[in-house]
Simulated scan of single mutants.
Amino acid sequence: MASSRGEILEAFGRHLALQRGRSAHTVRAYTADVADLLHHLDPGADPATATGLPPMDLTTLRAWLAAQQRRGMSRATLARRAAAARTFSRWAHRSGHLPADVGARLRSPRPDQHLPTVLRVPDATALLAVARERATGPVQLRDWAALELLYATGVRVAELTAVDTTDVDLRERTLRVTGKGDKQRVVPFGVPAAEAVQAWLARGRPALVTPASGAALFLGARGARLDPRTVRAVLHRLTALAGVHDIAPHGLRHSAATHLLDGGSDLRSVQELLGHASLATTQRYTHVTPERLRAAYTQAHPRA
């Protein structure tokens, strides 16, 4: 009996997680992308009852991406969806769901090369000062500690919310995080972040902890592990209160990387801190100010 499309998607998700070692976030994103592709190819089908896959070839895959581009989808999202389609096509062919690997020659749109928005150092300082001033209750202590760690370490928000209490070493001031591909790395943080985390652990977390909390470092108001969406909402609210540019948690990651470079860190060290597999990713990720370029040139070039 042929598998339903829902069962095929579930099997694809298990393949991504168990055999490819992809993160839960990537599994969710890729399976959602493929579900959208199948709906585009056969909009009236019910995934729970429709069996097998609808006919697809390179032309239909390109038409799917083109339709999304017309709807205004970003190049980064289009590139991810193309990658999801290629991965699914290869797996579906090997699993016997497709007669050929129709996505093998599907090319991804080039991602936008625009520089990300970052905070200036005084703005980052003002933002964290507001978070500290408001840290009078358990939730506010959590918000302060979370933002301090995001900026101090440059970790992704999903990495931060996945951290357990055992992943924090306040004596050494290091944080162990699990990044993409389940790769672990240890990143340092400074005294301000250590003070915020210590205050959260001493006065904030005990007030929110419940049997459902487990070992999670950061907790939601009801005691469960903190949701990344809550961190985003907190950051948007506090940037408004601080009167600085509105950014998402990834903006703090961009800012941390840029400020490290401006402070004299080398690109390879920043790559290790951010957990990037490629140095080219780190180069695209960071602002390098004209002042830093001029200072580096003046210091290093023999004819400066």
Rank of each mutant, 00 (worst) to 15 (best):
T31Q: 12
A32E: 07
A32C: 03
A32I: 00
D33W: 09
D36Q: 13
D36K: 07
L37K: 09
L37C: 09
L38E: 10
D42A: 15
P43L: 05
A45Q: 03
D46F: 02
D46N: 10
T49P: 00
T49D: 09
A50G: 01
T51N: 05
T51M: 07
L53E: 00
M56G: 02
D57N: 14
L58Y: 07
T60N: 02
W64P: 03
W64A: 00
W64H: 08
W64C: 00
L65G: 01
A67M: 00
Q68L: 12
Q68E: 04
Q69C: 07
R70L: 09
R70G: 08
R70S: 09
G72M: 05
M73W: 08
S74R: 07
R75G: 09
R75F: 10
A76Q: 13
A76W: 00
T77P: 03
T77A: 12
A82M: 09
A83Q: 08
R86Y: 01
R86E: 03
T87I: 00
S89P: 08
S89A: 14
H93K: 11
R94Q: 10
R94C: 05
R94D: 12
R94I: 02
R94L: 11
S95L: 01
L98Y: 12
P99A: 15
A104C: 04
A104N: 04
R105M: 15
R105S: 15
P109T: 12
R110P: 13
D112L: 10
H114D: 14
L115V: 07
L115I: 11
L115H: 04
V121H: 10
P122K: 10
P122Q: 14
